Deep mutational scan, measured.
Amino acid sequence: MSGIALSRLAQERKAWRKDHPFGFVAVPTKNPDGTMNLMNWECAIPGKKGTPWEGGLFKLRMLFKDDYPSSPPKCKFEPPLFHPNVYPSGTVCLSILEEDKDWRPAITIKQILLGIQELLNEPNIQDPAQAEAYTIYCQNRVEYEKRVRAQAKKFAPS
């Protein structure tokens, strides 16, 4: 494992614990031996107030490669969400998460999670990743928002 990646992720964890947006979660997972795995984080993004996503808490896994922060983490909703920019596998399609697009090593975990929260309610229809959600979003916004509200209710924190 890269010392650069681990040191950056340790800084990220410290900064997150000191200050993070209300309702968001970002925690490194534990290895079988109980030690912390900084390369694999369990996160959760709350649906934004005043949107059909409100009330939901959407679980996301963030996986970092050894060359982080040169390369972005892979962000994957578990379980996958109904959304035009979420692949059926759950992987998020967002330009700041793509090395050859808008990724920059200075982007923080907090910025990534806030960017994904923004994307939930403002899909990028130029870059669809899920045919069904994309089609319904474009053709029947009322039905799309109904499905999103049902999903938010399903993923409401207990």
Rank of each mutant, 00 (worst) to 15 (best):
F24K: 01
P28M: 05
T108L: 14
P105S: 09
K154E: 10
D102K: 07
D19T: 15
Q117I: 07
G90C: 07
I45W: 07
L94S: 08
S95F: 00
Y144F: 05
P79S: 14
I125M: 09
R8S: 01
I125C: 11
G55D: 14
W16V: 02
A5V: 13
P28Y: 00
A156Y: 08
N40F: 07
L63E: 15
I136A: 11
Q11W: 11
N124F: 08
A131W: 00
V25F: 11
P69T: 00
P88L: 13
H83S: 02
E132T: 08
L114Y: 12
Q130T: 08
K76G: 13
W103I: 03
P52R: 09
F22L: 06
N124E: 02
I116E: 05
R61H: 10
I109W: 08
Y87A: 03
H83V: 03
W41T: 01
G34K: 07
H83E: 00
H20F: 04
Q117S: 11
L57Y: 07
T35F: 00
A150P: 09
D100S: 15
K74A: 15
T135R: 12
A129E: 01
A150R: 12
R147F: 03
D33N: 05
V86S: 10
R13E: 03
D100K: 12
K48Y: 01
P46Q: 04
G34Y: 04
K76A: 15
L94Q: 03
V92L: 08
E143D: 11
E78R: 14
V27A: 08
K74H: 14
A150S: 12
I116P: 01
G115I: 00
R147T: 14
M36N: 00
I109Y: 03
P79D: 14
C93W: 00
Y134S: 11
F22Q: 03
D19W: 06
F64D: 05
E145D: 13
P32S: 12
P80F: 12
T29I: 11
P72I: 00
P123I: 05
Y87K: 03
R8V: 14
P21R: 00
F22P: 03
P157Q: 14
P73V: 14
R13W: 00
R61S: 12
E99Y: 14
H83I: 03
L63W: 00
L113W: 04
S95Q: 03
T51Q: 14
F24G: 07
H83T: 15
R61K: 13
E145L: 14
P69F: 04
